[in-house]
């Protein structure tokens, strides 16, 4: 084990950390919006909307993320009208292709989590809110959504970890995030274990912090479960 090499590789891998974090946060943010819209459409009961969102979730959960990334990065650039359209400045950049693929992927999974959570909100609470004279929108905003979000947090925590790991696939389309840098350094130094350990610890740290944050959010949202002083 070459300790100096491990120590020397740390600054270069740390320099790649912001890109990983950027990929993950942007993908999670866009994915959350997408998931919210998808879950609502799925629950709307409109047949066209249900069919479309089911197809979206089926395709993106049934194929590997690598296929989705390649399809967006290599596949879309081949289509003439996309290259001529206003989307091209965005889709010609690997960064945005990676974020788009990650967001579409996490959106499909999160939509299912959110839908499941919304369906577990007790009907009695909705009826009680209706009886208090709240409109449908207000019931959704004040009762259904907060309870559902609280319910979905543990499952969403897993999804966040999956996204942190999935961001490593951006390295296959030239993004130099942690895994990309690690791969390049392994090829240069042949110090496979040393670099794997440093990069692995970085990922474990990110995941540890993400898990803590989710746990904290869960704690904040369940004051009724805490022991009363």
């Amino acid at each position: 084990m070459n300790w100096t090499l491990m120590w020397d590789s740390l600054p270069r891998l740390l320099a790649a950390l912001p890109l990983t974090l950027q990929l993950v946060t942007l993908a999670l943010a866009f994915g959350a919006v997408l998931a919210f819209a998808t879950a609502l459409l799925r629950l709307s009961g409109n047949r066209v909307a249900v069919a479309l969102t089911s197809a979206y979730s089926f395709v993106f959960r049934g194929t590997p993320l690598l296929v989705q990334i390649f399809l967006i990065y290599y596949g879309l650039s081949q289509i003439e009208f996309i290259r001529d359209s206003f989307l091209w400045p965005v889709l010609s950049q690997p960064m945005w292709c990676a974020i788009l693929a990650l967001a579409l992927n996490t959106g499909a999974y999160t939509a299912e989590i959110l839908r499941g959570a919304i369906e577990t909100v007790p009907q009695g609470q909705v009826e009680a809110a209706r009886a208090c004279g709240m409109s449908r929108l207000r019931v959704f905003r004040r009762i259904v959504l907060p309870v559902a979000i609280r319910q979905m947090l543990p499952a969403y925590g897993n999804e966040v970890i999956l996204m942190v790991k999935a961001s490593s696939l951006a390295s296959t389309i030239t993004m130099m995030e942690i895994t990309g840098v690690a791969r390049r350094m392994i090829a240069q130094t042949f110090a496979v274990f040393e670099i794997f350990i440093v990069a692995g610890i970085l990922y474990l740290l990110i995941n540890f912090i993400a898990t803590r944050l989710i746990k904290h959010a869960e704690w904040r949202m369940t004051p009724h479960l805490r022991a009363r002083a």
Partner: peptide, 17 residues
């Protein structure tokens, strides 16, 4: 460790090492 580290990194570890 295995569930917290990207799959791609594990594959590189075994591929190169």
């Amino acid at each position: 460790a295995v569930r917290g580290v990207p799959e791609l990194l594990v594959i590189y570890l075994l591929f190169f090492g």
